[in-house]
């Protein structure tokens, strides 16, 4: 040790600072990443309190949500049906729009348009959920009241359309990436055969980019089911099972956000809300893990 110190002061810092930074940064990493497991384990643990109160089948498929009844009735069918409706509407709008924006950006846009469009989409992705909800409330909801002769315009359709705007930038940016990854050579080979640009895109570019676009759509799906406030503010928060898209409803996320703060800790209702969160969590994590694992394979196709 004395030798080392005599040689170089820097050497000393290597002896002391490096192990310290190594340990501290590894500890930070393990602590931070462990929150993922903390969420999974905690939500499942609290959800398990519902076991014995109600069967999984009844919880998901048959029981109504009347937590104040005696004994409480704790089914979430109305919620996942609303979530399904909202997600379906949002994807019906967001997939054509997002892929259209991507086709424009990657294939047609002059460089200046591309330079403007990308920050625009980032701004769209940066608007908070609650602001979207407010915007929908003062525009869509008001228009619906006039167009469909509704007493209140809050409905599954209004929620679905606003959620569509929130997922569009996602689908657009992933699809643009996928289209950009198709080599210029393939594209030029098509064009050199004298066919139209549309035909080249349809038969050469799109098939190669399809796995990446598919990944974007699936991730958009996961985001749409996790969307909370924008949907909650526009859907009308009704626990009836929705019959049409102009009915009011309550998404899974909305159910948890509305009731969790008021549920007494440890009651069946409290556990049921964690169980609803668990359903959401398992769905979203499975989708993301699937896409992340398949990403390499999906993207390799493009090259």
């Amino acid at each position: 040790m004395a030798q080392v110190m005599a040689q170089d002061v820097r050497q000393l810092s290597r002896m002391t600072l490096d192990p310290l930074m190594w340990t501290a940064s590894l500890a930070a990493l393990l602590l931070g990443v462990s929150t993922l497991f903390l969420i999974i384990i905690y939500v499942l643990y609290q959800a398990s309190g519902l076991i014995g109160e109600i069967s999984l089948g009844a919880f998901l498929f048959s029981e109504a949500w009347v937590p104040l009844a005696e004994p409480p009735r704790l089914g979430i069918m109305h919620a996942w049906m609303s979530t399904l409706y909202v997600t379906a509407i949002s994807l019906l709008v967001a997939v054509p729009l997002g892929v259209g924006i991507a086709l424009f950006t990657a294939e047609l846009a002059p460089p200046a348009a591309r330079a403007v469009l990308q920050p625009c989409l980032e701004v769209l992705a940066g608007i908070p959920s609650v602001v979207y909800g407010f915007f929908g409330f003062v525009t869509l909801v008001v228009w619906f009241e006039a167009w469909f002769d509704m007493t209140t315009g809050v409905s599954i359709l209004a929620a679905g359309l606003i959620v569509a705007i929130t997922v569009t930038p996602f689908i657009a940016s992933t699809a643009t990436e996928a289209l950009d990854a198709v080599s210029a050579g393939d594209r030029e080979a098509g064009l050199s055969l004298g066919v139209t640009r549309f035909y080249t895109i349809r038969r050469i570019v799109l098939p190669r980019a399809m796995p990446g676009i598919f990944a974007g759509v699936v991730l958009g799906f996961a985001r749409a089911i996790g969307e909370t406030l924008a949907a909650l503010m526009l859907i009308g928060n009704s626990v009836a099972i929705p019959g049409s898209v102009l009915d009011r409803g309550q998404t899974l996320t909305g159910l948890v956000a509305t009731e969790l703060g008021e549920a007494a800790v440890g009651t069946p209702k409290y556990h049921a809300l964690f169980a609803a969160s668990a359903v959401l969590m398992v769905l979203i994590l499975l989708i993301n893990v699937g896409i992340l694992l398949a990403k390499k394979r999906l993207l390799r196709h493009g090259f």
Binding site: L38, I39, G226, S277, L280, M281
Partner: peptide, 15 residues
């Protein structure tokens, strides 16, 4: 980390 980034905001609130 990417899985964690995909967890919706609501679940962080619930935890």
């Amino acid at each position: 980390a990417e899985c964690l980034a995909a967890v919706p905001a609501l679940l962080f609130g619930v935890l």
